[in-house]
Every structure is written in structure tokens, then in C-alpha cells.
């Protein structure tokens, strides 16, 4: 066994092992967990948003239908990156504005003064006295919201398409049996649509994974941040001097994403086979026909 106390005296593989287990590298490995947790938290939220939007877009009430339709359509026209930059900032300012109005009602001036956004100290989110951990968590939650909104709109597209794909005759049969609209929705449409939605949803899952490096744009210390930080050239003033290694760090990230998408693809393939059992969809007839 060797120790890492004198890095300049060790060489080769031992040096590499020591180098890869510094405190900063541990933070780098933790950021992979952050990325995966973002995906795992966002996916169900986005599915919920999408489900609500897709259901509302079929509503008979115009006030419910049109906002849902606009929400679903927005990701077709505007790049998702714009939302990732806009939503966290807008949310943050919105929250601070409301707190400012509620907590410091004595200040009547506009919060936008020149090129600044000024709220009183006790309206800050999180409070400037809060720990660094609270700041990180708040930033992460803003990012989760932004991702959930954007991917909720994507999921809304997929689910609206899937609801439209459920054979109309089945819904009519439901109402012929005397079911109410609500009953038709929950007993016929809802259970039937998933098989039509699955290919689109699996694609969305991969899309969500591939969108995670954009966390870097939101100022979160994610894997891209650490790859740049750790990979940049270190002079001999550092414990572990090395030339510019960023290209290797990014190569490692590419391999990581390749692996995650590969695993997801296999899981969804299996799910798709499981769910389409006994369904009259194209895949089965192809299998039956050879």
C-alpha cells in the first residue's frame, strides 16, 4: 500500500490513483449523482405536467383547453435552452418580488432600478445569511422546475398524440355503455394510451438525459463545470501538476452518457415488449408475420 501524502515523489499508476482520489475529484464524482438525481426527480414531474396538459388540451372548456395547447406548442417554436436560461431567473425574481411586496410593504419604489433588481434584505431567496448548502439546494430546485416545465411540454405533445391514437370506437363504445366523460377517460382512454405513448416517452427520457449537461448554464457545479475545472492545465504550484487535460475529461463524459443512453435503450426495449403483449399494434403483427 502507498500513501498520497507526497504526490511529487510517486509515479505512474500510483500517482494516477492518488490524483483521481483528491477531494475535488470526489466532488466531481458526486456531481454525477446530482445529474442522475435531477433526471430521476424531473422525469415524474414532467410526466405529471404533460399528463395534465394533454388532458386539459382535450377539455370541453375553452379556458382550460387553450392555455394547455399553447403550453404544449411552445417547445416546438422556442429552443429549450432559452427556457433553461429564462425560467430559473424569472422564477427567482418572481419569488423575491412577491416576498418583497409582502415583507417590505413600506418600500414603494420599483424593484427594477436602472440595471438592477433590488429587493429588501429579508425578501432575498435564500436569505444571504443562509448556508452555502441552502443556496445550492435552491438553485437545484429552480433547475428542476425549469426542466420539468420544458419536458412537461414535450411529454404533453407525446401524450396528446397517444390519446388521439386510442381508437375512437373504443371511446364511443364506452359512452354507449352509459359511461360519463370522466369514466370514459379513466376506464378506457387512460389505460389504453400508454402503449401508444411509450416510444415517444422513451425518446423523451433519452432527450432528458442528453439535456442534463445544460445544468452548467444555470451556474450549478455539475459534471461539465468540474470537467473544465479539473482538466485545465495545472502549474507546478499545484499538488498534481499536469498539462491541459480537458479533452480527456470530456471524453470521459462522452463515455458516461453513451453508457447511460445504452442502458436506457435496453430497458425501454424490454418495457415496450412487455406492454405491447396482446395489443394490436404494428410491432406484434410484424413479429407474428415473421
Amino acid at each position: 500500500m502507498f500513501s498520497c501524502t507526497n504526490p511529487d515523489q510517486i509515479e505512474g499508476l500510483n500517482w494516477l490513483v492518488c490524483y483521481l482520489s483528491t477531494a475535488k475529484h470526489m466532488a466531481f464524482y458526486q456531481s454525477f449523482v446530482v445529474v442522475l438525481s435531477l433526471v430521476l426527480i424531473t422525469a415524474p414531474l414532467a410526466l405529471l405536467f404533460g399528463l395534465m396538459a394533454a388532458s386539459a388540451s382535450r377539455s370541453a372548456i375553452a379556458v382550460m383547453r387553450w392555455p394547455a395547447k399553447i403550453y404544449i406548442a411552445m417547445v416546438r417554436g422556442v429552443p429549450d435552452i432559452v427556457f433553461f436560461l429564462f425560467v430559473p431567473l424569472a422564477l427567482d425574481q418572481g419569488i423575491e418580488y412577491i416576498r418583497h411586496r409582502a415583507l417590505c410593504s413600506d418600500q414603494t419604489g420599483s424593484v427594477w432600478q436602472g440595471n438592477d433588481f433590488i429587493v429588501c434584505d429579508i425578501a432575498k431567496m435564500p436569505l444571504s445569511s443562509a448556508s452555502a448548502w441552502a443556496h445550492d439546494f435552491y438553485g437545484f430546485m429552480l433547475a428542476v422546475t425549469a426542466y420539468a416545465i420544458v419536458f412537461g411540454a414535450f411529454a404533453g405533445n407525446v401524450l396528446a398524440g397517444a390519446m388521439a391514437a386510442v381508437p375512437h370506437a373504443q371511446l364511443e363504445t364506452g359512452s354507449a355503455f352509459g359511461m360519463s366523460r370522466r369514466q370514459v377517460y379513466w376506464r378506457v382512454l387512460f389505460p389504453q394510451m400508454w402503449i401508444y405513448a411509450l416510444p415517444g416517452l422513451s425518446n423523451l427520457w433519452v432527450l432528458l438525459i442528453k439535456a442534463t449537461p445544460l445544468l452548467f448554464l444555470l451556474g450549478i457545479q455539475d459534471i461539465v463545470y468540474w470537467a473544465r475545472e479539473l482538466g485545465s492545465a495545472k502549474t507546478s504550484a499545484y499538488t498534481y501538476p499536469h498539462p491541459d487535460w480537458r479533452v480527456w475529461y470530456f471524453l470521459a463524459l462522452l463515455i458516461f452518457y453513451l453508457f447511460v443512453t445504452w442502458v436506457s435503450e435496453r430497458v425501454f426495449d424490454r418495457l415496450n415488449r412487455r406492454f405491447s403483449r396482446g395489443q394490436a399494434v404494428l410491432m406484434n403483427s410484424q413479429q407474428a408475420g415473421g
Binding site: I209, K210, A211, T212, P213, L214, F216, V224, A227, R228, G231, D244, R246, V247, F250, L251, L253, L254, Y257, L258, T261, W262
Partner: peptide, 22 residues
């Protein structure tokens, strides 16, 4: 096709830039 579809464009940009610099 697999390589470029399986990885994020954002990381591809970063990787390519660092490669071109070298």
C-alpha cells in the same frame, strides 16, 4: 450514428473544441 446520437451535443461541442485546440 450511435456515437453521435448517444451523447449530448453540448458535450460534443466541448470535446471538439478541446480537441481542436490541441
Amino acid at each position: 450514428i450511435y456515437l453521435f446520437r448517444g451523447t449530448p451535443l453540448f458535450i460534443q461541442f466541448f470535446f471538439a473544441y478541446e480537441l481542436f485546440v490541441l
